[in-house]
Nucleic acid binder design. Structure first.
Length: 121
DNA sequence: CTGCTGACTGGTA
DNA sequence: GTACCAGCCAGCA
């Protein structure tokens, strides 16, 4: 089943995040093949059993830090140490630093309809 | 802009 | 089939 497979994709996607950049759970989920599985990604990240997976580089959407097992503030320091200034609970220039995995950043950005029946999928 | 609430989804155990 | 989770988005104050 994809249980192990999905997890592996998520871990791989996270490990692909270059230093100095950040990705959101949603981006990781999308990179894993399920753009709506952001929650599931968070679940997997929490276990964080795989090495080489900088879960601290994975943050919530909007540039928010999101959570972190044990020490959320540690995450903030780690990001800051990588060259990512964090103000309060948000990443500075987040939109410019967010790494989507393989998607250009200058692309769309909520234009209209997104949640309503848009005949997508 | 910031903060909180509410309703939703997707995957794991 | 149920419960759990480190989210995401939209709306409101």
């Amino acid at each position: 089943m994809a249980a192990n497979d999905f997890r592996r994709r998520v871990l791989t996607a996270v490990s692909r995040i270059p230093a100095g950049r950040v990705a959101t759970y949603g981006d990781i989920a999308a990179a894993a093949g399920s753009p709506r599985a952001s929650r599931a990604v968070g679940n997997i990240m929490r276990e964080c059993r795989a090495p080489g997976v900088p879960c601290h580089r994975v943050i919530a959407a909007g540039g928010q830090l999101g959570g972190y097992g044990g020490s959320p503030q540690l995450k903030r320091e780690l990001l800051r140490a990588e060259g990512i200034p964090v103000i309060r609970n948000r990443i500075r220039e987040f939109t410019d630093r967010r790494w989507t995995g393989t998607r250009p950043k200058g692309s769309g950005r909520r234009s209209k309809a997104t949640r309503s029946g848009n005949g997508d999928v």
